[in-house]
Design a protein around this nucleic acid. Structure first.
Ligand code: ZN
Ligand code: ZN
Ligand code: ZN
Ligand code: ZN
Lengths: 124, 124
DNA sequence: CCATTTTTGACAACCATTTTCGTTTTCGCG
DNA sequence: CGCGAAAACGAAAATGGTTGTCAAAAATGG
């Protein structure tokens, strides 16, 4: 793990919710780093490949990344206002997805689940 | 509904699984239509706004569209080889998502769920 | 018909991401 | 150390899906 890559990891870990590559690049530059945008992309690619960070696409196609507290399979409920994310475990939904797959003759079933809402703070 | 827009709708309805705007454009041109790419995008935008088609982003950021048999809320299980999609109803997952939201104090809870697998055909 | 509005499509602009490539840093080993 | 290979880096250019622009074409309706 190079110094640059570690910096990207920390920038991501130190923020809550999803951040885009451009966001993280701006953050790092703002705090004085001379890192290049290309390197931010490479670091995020590596972190994503190794499963250390979660990546998904926003509705407008931008890739956003998130460092989770645990590396085991789980999901999130995300506030659509402040983007705060709570990690949730879901035996129910895991079982449901597996059953759906079996029922329709699909093998190696995986799934993506995202839950959105307005958090207690933001709905006040 | 203009003729062009209707043509896009039919091109989408007539194919199974998710199709990109560029795919549909190529199809329409191949069958002799003089439609422009811009119009395809505009038609898909309109169809998506009206809830007639489903849109999601692939892992590489491309928007893909699908005409569903029903307009009510449902999910899909998609073959990762041939992209065939089966529509599934899930009271279980609907309830689960709502409960998760309530449990953490979130309001107006929505969710996105996609299930992937290898279909019976493709796993032979 | 004519005036007004809507739709269309060629082309340019956009912008996140990837590629390229020459430079810099790191690493292994004598 | 010293030195050569290998990896990491960053600036700039290229890529590619999508959106904006704008003048022409088509529908509308009086
Ligand atoms: Zn919030
Ligand atoms: Zn799960
Ligand atoms: Zn299949
Ligand atoms: Zn649902």
């Amino acid at each position: 793990m190079s110094t640059r890559r570690e910096a990207v990891r920390q920038a991501l870990t130190g923020s809550s919710g999803f951040r885009s590559a451009q966001d993280l690049y701006a953050d790092l530059r703002a705090e004085g780093s001379k890192i290049g945008l290309t390197t931010v992309y490479r670091a995020l690619q590596a972190l994503s490949d190794s499963g250390e960070v979660d990546v998904l696409r926003t509705d407008d196609g931008e890739a956003v990344y998130r460092a989770c507290d645990t590396e085991s399979h789980h999901h999130h409920i995300v506030c659509r206002v402040c983007a705060t994310a709570v990690e949730i475990e879901g035996p129910t939904v895991e079982k449901w997805a597996a059953e759906m797959g079996a029922q329709h003759g699909f093998r190696d079933v995986t799934h993506t689940v995202e839950v959105f809402g307005t958090c207690a703070n933001c709905s006040r």
